[in-house]
């Protein structure tokens, strides 16, 4: 009998939770705010679904009731992606060591 592909996805999911668990515990507490902003940015990879949704219409009707939601989701996710990564960058650039003092 063949294994349902769902089981493979579930395996990836469960293993990723464990990876996440160990990786996040190793994050230094002083970087917890950048951690939140970067997780924010990467969870916006949901934009993948938004792109599929928005291109689901045919060429005569680009905007139908289903693709409209896709386009809206693209904008929302894009705000997060750019905003999240850039603000993380901005924060991380501020963390300096003592030796670097003027």
């Amino acid at each position: 009998m063949e294994i349902d592909p769902f089981i493979f996805r579930l395996s990836i999911f469960i293993l990723s939770i464990f990876v996440g668990y160990y990786v996040v515990w190793s994050v230094t507490p002083s970087l917890h705010t950048p951690l939140m902003s970067v997780t924010n940015a990467i969870s916006s990879v949901i934009i993948v679904g938004a792109i599929i949704a928005s291109l689901s219409g045919n060429s005569s009707s680009i905007f139908n009731e289903s693709s409209i939601f896709g386009f809206l989701a693209i904008s929302l996710a894009a705000i997060n992606i750019f905003g999240g990564f850039l603000v993380t960058q901005r924060m991380l650039a501020m963390y300096k060591k003592k030796k670097g003092k003027k």
């Binding site: 469960i14 990723s16 679904g49």
Partner: peptide
């Protein structure tokens, strides 16, 4: 939420990310 959508779309990147972010928030 992202992981749930990832399962729907059968998308590995979304499933991995959803799990990472989910456990990260839970640990925090």
């Amino acid at each position: 939420a992202a992981a749930g959508i990832g399962f729907t779309l059968e998308n590995t990147a979304l499933i991995i990310t959803g799990a990472l972010v989910g456990s990260s928030g839970a640990i925090l």
